Amino acid sequence: MTDKRPPFPPFTAGTAREKVQAAEDAWNSRDPERVALAYTEDSEWRNRDTFLRGRAQIVEFLRDKWRRELDYRLRKELWAFTDNRIAVRFEYEWHDEADQWFRSYGNENWEFDENGLMRRRYASINDLTISADERRIAL
């Protein structure tokens, strides 16, 4: 049985926004298994300087990420789209075990298969140290 994750390409402005919102909601759940279901079994990722392939590596990566990045909260914004590709800008806030807060900014390029699953995700991310009172994204 093939996994399907609507909306499906080719994307319109409306369906691209739906896809971005679904991704934001899933990532804010901080549930690695839930997030991984949006990707193909052999999905390719570049996240900063880390290269991953497949759902198992995605789940492991996200478990480690959310063990380090506490109280993670994300916002995504549609930047552009074509038939089966979407570009987003994002920012997220989190703190480490020492209670130092960070805001991470970046861009992602996504490519989807015909079933609406993401087969490629390329993320470029930069971190900014912030104080707790500079936070913009509520928990």
Results as ranks from 00 to 15, higher is better:
residue 23 A to L: 01
residue 37 L to K: 15
residue 5 R to V: 07
residue 90 F to R: 08
residue 73 R to A: 00
residue 99 D to H: 06
residue 87 A to Q: 10
residue 124 S to L: 14
residue 34 R to E: 14
residue 9 P to S: 07
residue 105 Y to F: 15
residue 19 K to Q: 08
residue 100 Q to M: 00
residue 105 Y to P: 02
residue 117 L to F: 01
residue 94 W to G: 00
residue 7 P to S: 00
residue 89 R to F: 07
residue 30 R to K: 11
residue 84 N to C: 04
residue 92 Y to S: 11
residue 44 E to K: 04
residue 20 V to A: 10
residue 63 R to K: 13
residue 121 R to L: 13
residue 132 A to F: 00
residue 5 R to N: 15
residue 12 T to M: 09
residue 10 P to G: 03
residue 104 S to H: 02
residue 132 A to N: 02
residue 15 T to A: 06
residue 74 L to P: 05
residue 89 R to I: 08
residue 104 S to E: 02
residue 91 E to H: 11
residue 8 F to Q: 00
residue 25 D to R: 08
residue 71 D to V: 01
residue 5 R to K: 13
residue 57 Q to E: 15
residue 105 Y to D: 09
residue 98 A to N: 07
residue 35 V to R: 06
residue 46 R to V: 04
residue 30 R to N: 04
residue 104 S to K: 02
residue 112 F to T: 12
residue 79 W to G: 12
residue 86 I to K: 10
residue 39 Y to M: 03
residue 90 F to K: 11
residue 90 F to M: 12
residue 118 M to S: 07
residue 37 L to W: 10
residue 134 E to M: 08
residue 36 A to G: 09
residue 43 S to N: 10
residue 4 K to W: 10
residue 108 E to Q: 13
residue 32 P to K: 03
residue 67 R to S: 12
residue 132 A to C: 03
residue 42 D to E: 04
residue 3 D to F: 07
residue 13 A to K: 15
residue 60 E to F: 05
residue 30 R to A: 09
residue 101 W to R: 00
residue 113 D to N: 15
residue 30 R to S: 06
residue 19 K to G: 05
residue 19 K to Y: 04
residue 55 R to Q: 05
residue 13 A to Y: 05
residue 5 R to L: 09
residue 48 R to S: 08
residue 30 R to I: 07
residue 128 L to H: 12
residue 131 S to W: 02
residue 55 R to N: 01
residue 117 L to Q: 09
residue 47 N to W: 09
residue 8 F to D: 04
residue 127 D to A: 05
residue 63 R to S: 06
residue 67 R to E: 15
residue 112 F to R: 14
residue 43 S to R: 14
residue 32 P to E: 07
residue 95 H to W: 07
residue 6 P to A: 01
residue 99 D to G: 08
residue 110 W to V: 03
residue 8 F to M: 11
residue 101 W to Y: 12
residue 30 R to Y: 04
residue 100 Q to S: 02
residue 130 I to G: 04
residue 135 R to F: 06
residue 92 Y to A: 14
residue 120 R to Y: 03
residue 121 R to A: 03
residue 116 G to N: 10
residue 79 W to Q: 15
residue 48 R to F: 10
residue 8 F to E: 06
residue 88 V to D: 09
residue 49 D to S: 14
residue 76 K to L: 13
residue 94 W to M: 03
residue 94 W to C: 01
residue 81 F to R: 14
residue 52 L to Y: 05
residue 43 S to V: 15
residue 99 D to A: 13
residue 99 D to S: 12
residue 55 R to L: 00
residue 116 G to R: 14
residue 3 D to C: 06
residue 130 I to E: 05
residue 25 D to T: 13
residue 134 E to S: 05
